[in-house]
Computed example of a mutant assay.
Amino acid sequence: MLMVGGHYTYAEVPLFDGLFGSERNNYDKVGHFFQGFVPALLAREILIRKNVVNGDFWRSVIIVSICLAFSAFYELVEWWVAIATGENAEAFLGTQGYVWDTQSDMGLALLGAICSLLVLSSVHNKQLQKELFKG
């Protein structure tokens, strides 16, 4: 996914031009969704294996918070690199004139983390149970 965005730049991936009638290329939004989706599983695995938090509710709150922290840090790094390189920040960041780009990126990471927990937690629990009874 990153290689496609790196080849075209995130604002110019052909498949996403004008998708769903949008004036901007939303390829980067897919990446930000998965920026929450994938780390949620990793964080969940670590928190369960290390027995850091008991209870599904608080574990989920912490997992979502970890994903949002990761997303916020990524947005800060993007900003710092744009400032440090003196590049056209809008082109580098892929904001395409969208004033709420950073907030929507983080919103999609939040949505990705929540979707990951809702869709994959039961599957993950079954895998962990199999491993527990195996060992």
Score class of each variant (00 low, 15 high):
Y98I: 14
I63R: 00
L68F: 00
E90G: 11
I62H: 00
Q127S: 13
N26W: 03
E12I: 07
G31T: 05
Q127Y: 08
S104A: 07
A109Y: 04
T102G: 11
H124C: 15
V52H: 01
N54I: 04
F57S: 11
G97W: 06
Q103F: 03
L120K: 05
G94Y: 01
W58Y: 12
W58Q: 13
A113I: 08
G21W: 04
V119M: 13
A72K: 09
L111M: 12
L128Y: 07
L111Y: 08
F37N: 11
R44I: 10
W79H: 00
G36T: 07
Y8C: 01
G135F: 06
Q129Y: 04
G55E: 03
R24D: 06
E75C: 09
Y10M: 15
K29L: 03
F37W: 02
E78F: 05
A11Q: 12
C115A: 09
N54Q: 15
W80M: 09
W100I: 03
E131L: 15
L110Y: 00
I83M: 08
N51G: 09
L47R: 04
G86A: 06
L108Y: 04
L132K: 14
I62G: 08
T102N: 09
G55T: 06
L47H: 02
H7K: 11
A43R: 00
L128V: 09
T102S: 14
C67A: 07
A109E: 10
R24A: 06
A113F: 09
Y8L: 00
D101F: 02
F57H: 09
E12S: 13
F20R: 13
L110W: 02
S65T: 05
D101H: 04
G36W: 03
N88A: 15
V123N: 14
A72M: 12
G21F: 11
G21R: 03
E131I: 11
E23S: 10
F16A: 13
G21M: 07
F34N: 15
A91I: 12
R44H: 03
I114D: 10
Q35I: 01
T102Y: 05
Y8H: 14
R49M: 09
Q96N: 13
A43Q: 04
Y10L: 14
L19F: 05
K29C: 00
A82N: 04
F73I: 12
D17F: 05
G55N: 05
G94H: 00
T95W: 02
N88Y: 01
S104D: 10
H7D: 10
G107T: 06
W100K: 13
F33S: 05
Q127K: 12
E45Q: 12
F70Y: 14
E78V: 11
N25H: 06
V123W: 14
Y8Q: 08
L15Q: 03
A91F: 07
L118P: 08
L117R: 14
G6H: 06
G36M: 01
L120C: 13
N88H: 06
R44S: 12
D56Y: 07
S121G: 07
